[in-house]
Design a protein around this nucleic acid. Structure first.
Lengths: 116, 116
DNA sequence: CTGTATCCTCAGAGATACTG
DNA sequence: CAGTATCTCTGAGGATACAG
């Protein structure tokens, strides 16, 4: 696999998670949690209705989230992770472990090393 | 760990990789490769000089890439991954494995399920 | 309750030109 | 060779209003 092909493949994976709200949504659903639209709004107070709806649609069409509509009055819509979405958890965990391995601060990091 | 805290932590990790060029750069350096500025330009022909320099600086200040300047004429600058940067490889691999597990296409995926 | 529609802003990507 | 400087422009995201 060439560096470019690998970068593209990983990039496509990351694209599914990019944006300011996707991770917030995902982490509120990890562990099999099932939330209504209004519950997600409360869980993520900073998000606008437009962005919440938009990102949920994206997550759904990308296969990470399942949306279930109940034909009731008043309307009810529930969101949960798909199995595939749930299976992302360990990978995000490994990302977390990686950040923990970051070196605190290189002593001479402010200036690039200069060899001669 | 709350969903919000986890989302923020993972978001910070992803931020280190976001942008159109960072992964391209990273994958060209994985495996201990050492490349000069001009070699990176050739490896990623679509990138402008501005973006390449800018993203390299970011990767460097984030601790993923090490930059080594040789005080020669003509100038020579080499880039390689730090140990921490190199240690990201398995995680990106697991991301790749994850995408491979994606379900091909849900039969009734175009319309959301409607319960009653 | 669960969304669309519209308008607006502003960080960041890209093109181009220039420099030690 | 290895970069800055400057300009432009796009599009993600936000505010607000409206709708089934």
């Amino acid at each position: 696999m060439t560096p470019d092909a690998a970068a593209e493949a990983v990039g496509e994976a990351l694209a599914l998670l990019e944006g300011r709200w996707k991770l917030r949504i995902l982490f509120n659903l990890f562990g099999g949690k099932v939330l209504r639209y209004s519950e997600l709004e409360r869980a993520i107070p900073e998000v606008s209705q437009k962005m919440l709806a938009q990102q949920l649609r994206r997550l759904e069409s990308d296969g990470l989230v399942r949306r279930e509509v109940f034909g009731e009055v008043p309307p009810r819509v529930e969101y949960r992770l798909t199995e595939w979405g749930q299976s992302l958890c360990p990978t995000l965990d490994s990302l977390l472990q990686w950040t923990a391995r970051r070196v605190p601060a290189l002593s001479g990091a402010s200036e690039a090393s200069v060899a001669d």
